[in-house]
Design a protein around this nucleic acid. Structure first.
Lengths: 342, 342
DNA sequence: CTGTTAGCGCCTTCAC
DNA sequence: GTGAAGGCGCTAACAG
């Protein structure tokens, strides 16, 4: 049943014309008689001819494919970014090869390697939490492959970057908690070699300082991963302190959810005994009980913008290209896991 | 800065040998002197030579790439399936091109078309909820491209299939609700041209019948999408009935979550006034308040198995290939949104 | 051990 | 208007 796909040469032979003529006819070149065109077109349809993009790519050195590397695909955040990317590049006729590094530096390296061999036209990358060296990215840059870094920054690596103002988001959240009367605000922070986590922590600290609150090291608990289980564990520790917190600002919603569950277990009331704020504003967050106050990020737009910049860079790559740096603004969404302002 | 990647010919010229020799040396062919090999290897490293997979693919007609088409990538279900697929095929050196049809038949068609041009070695497909004709898939089959259909069946289309026993999952859920004393059990069903939704509905109906409960058409509310918002709307209707239900079996967790929120709004108690059961057992479901009883599916395994079957089919494709049909078993996870058995 | 030839499928000169 | 030739990068015969 498996038969060889038909080629331009097949058509040429059957019609007793040259392959070039067929190629031109298929591309509707003006220098081909209508007669020939019609004949070619018809036979092409009949033979179910489909151009072999591999051959075309080999010839003009462009695959119309871009590689996307994310730490993981199952999180709402990255899945939505990808969705935005997809919708953007599709119009331009680009395909996506999506890969997850599983937060591993080695896997990330290998993925870039492999995709390079396939000659993707550009990369969209959010580095793993273990990535601290960027040689693999430098290599891409050296070879002239456009790269856009998104969400998680790669310090000292020059490229187009589309990031979120995590500092601002965190600052807003904590400043708000303070204004609602919280005095001992804890932070469950993420891996500190991720810029996003650094910036959120800094935003937290600066909000405390600005409001004249003392900084207590014990109130900062760092988690390895980003799951609710991580949040549960961190929260238990915080609640076991001699002076437990009256608010928790969590690195993300998943962790916040874990925190809420532990707090409920202990019979404490949210937000009366303790306020909770998350980060990401996942779709479910408003459905929790109480609904979760969280920092919303323009995730879909992040994907759209990153890919637009990449496509632009690919289409038009002068020697004096100036890297773009975009910082998107997050927004605090106030719900019932924190107290109202008045 | 953008320089042409070096090729086998570059190395050959520099070393005054033929391209074939270089090719053989790079592949560590036994018929090449160690001397030459060393020289080639060294220069290759020096020039940062990377084989052009496009050329290789063009030659041996295999791209080591498989196309994955899902309705949407942002749902926990499909994202996790993809994760399983990724982990499986990676070992075999395959890449993934992941695309979402956005539940549109047209987009699905176009995606298959485009990926075919790129000569992917096989397809992993879960059809859109609008897909009722399978000509696009038949075309693939005719061209000899292996296709594995997963989760959502394509009736009358012959292919490898890896599905979940949705009927069984639904039956378990509803049977359990009845055993805990529920008498008026509603079902919020999904688009009925999806086999998954059909089967869940049938499981629901059969469980009622088997237990001698009357079937009330009013207790079945069908939603278009799979979001919590859809669930809210459907639930409002159900609660507004003259004889409202004392339990709701929802097509998935997202819908169930929406249902819970409406029920809380109305001041009713879960599960005392009304029990809720979802489907998918998403990671957050156990963190809701009350935690959600749900039907768990072996999602990751679904991805692993589907891709294993596909890779197998690709590697070894005799004329008398027998399509495989796998039906994975779901499992009811009992939590606090439903009453205990005793 | 190594080189030559040919070709994967397509397109782009350069001829006529 | 159309054809022939050459080449994208690589590999698999077939010769030595």
């Amino acid at each position: 049943m498996k038969r060889r796909p038909s080629t331009i040469t097949d058509i040429a032979k059957a019609l007793n014309v040259s392959a070039s003529t067929v190629s031109r006819a298929l591309h509707d070149s003006p220098s081909i008689s209508q007669e020939t065109k019609d004949a070619v077109m018809e036979l092409a349809k009949q033979l179910n001819y489909q151009p072999n993009m591999l051959a075309v790519s080999l010839l003009n050195k462009r695959t119309k494919t871009i590689g996307v590397i994310v730490p993981e695909i199952t999180s709402y955040f990255f899945a939505t970014v990808i969705s935005g990317v997809q919708d953007m590049v599709e119009e331009a006729g680009f395909k996506l090869i999506i890969c997850q590094s599983n937060e591993s530096y080695e896997e990330e390296q290998k993925l870039i390697e492999t995709l390079s061999l396939g000659r993707v036209d550009g990369f969209l990358i959010s580095p793993s939490s273990k990535t601290t060296k960027f040689d693999h990215l430098e290599k891409l840059r050296a070879s002239g492959t456009p790269v856009v870094v998104f969400d998680r920054d790669c310090p000292n690596f020059e490229a187009d970057k589309v990031l979120v103002d995590d500092y601002d988001g965190a600052f807003q959240a904590v400043d708000y908690l303070i204004k609602t009367g919280c005095k001992r605000i804890a932070h469950i922070s993420g891996p500190q070699n991720l810029t996003t986590c650094q910036h959120r922590k800094k935003g937290y600290l600066d909000a405390l300082k600005k409001n004249g609150l003392e900084i207590d090291e014990l109130l900062n608990s760092e988690v390895e991963g980003f799951t609710s289980e991580d949040g549960e564990e961190a929260t238990r520790k915080l609640l076991d302190l001699n002076l437990p917190p009256d608010a928790i600002f969590a690195i993300n919603d998943a962790v916040a959810i874990g925190a809420m569950s532990v707090i409920r277990e202990r019979g404490m009331k949210i937000p009366d005994d303790i306020s909770i704020v998350g980060f990401d504003d996942e779709p479910y967050s408003k459905y929790f009980n109480p609904s979760l106050t969280s920092v919303w990020q323009p995730v879909y737009d992040l994907g759209m913008l990153s890919s637009r910049i990449l496509m632009n860079h690919i289409a038009n790559d002068p020697d004096d290209y100036e890297y773009r740096y975009e910082l998107l603004k997050p927004e605090l969404i106030i719900r019932n896991s924190s107290k109202p302002l008045f």
